[in-house]
């Protein structure tokens, strides 16, 4: 499967809201590594609004605000399932 791009903001606001610990989770999960490509990125467009929306995570082109691990994993699962179905149908 083509890996899903997950970009986690590590600007100061997002770090303070837990983005580093979120990254730790995503990067160290061996089962997940086949499905995702994780990248730590600086702040984009101040989507966090002074930290009120932190942490900000971009999965492919979708921006997730107040991205708890629960929200992030749900989106990854949704995309991964869709991709696997799509790729099997094509094959």
């Amino acid at each position: 499967m083509k890996p899903i791009k997950v970009r986690v903001c590590v600007g100061t606001n997002c770090c303070y809201a837990g983005s580093e610990t979120l990254l730790d989770m995503l990067e160290n999960d061996v089962d997940l590594s086949a499905f995702i490509e994780v990248e730590a990125v600086p702040c984009k467009n101040k989507a966090c609004d002074g930290g009120r929306n932190s942490p900000v995570v971009e999965i492919e082109n979708k921006v997730l605000l107040n991205a708890t691990p629960e929200i992030v994993m749900e989106e990854i699962e949704r995309l991964a399932t869709a991709r696997i179905i799509e790729e099997t149908q094509r094959a």
Binding site: V10, G11, T12, N13, C15, Y16, P42, C43, G50
Partner: peptide
């Protein structure tokens, strides 16, 4: 300390 950075909107990554 990080609360001061956040409150002052100082981004150490930038």
């Amino acid at each position: 300390l990080a609360a001061i950075f956040v409150a002052k909107d100082i981004d150490l990554a930038e």
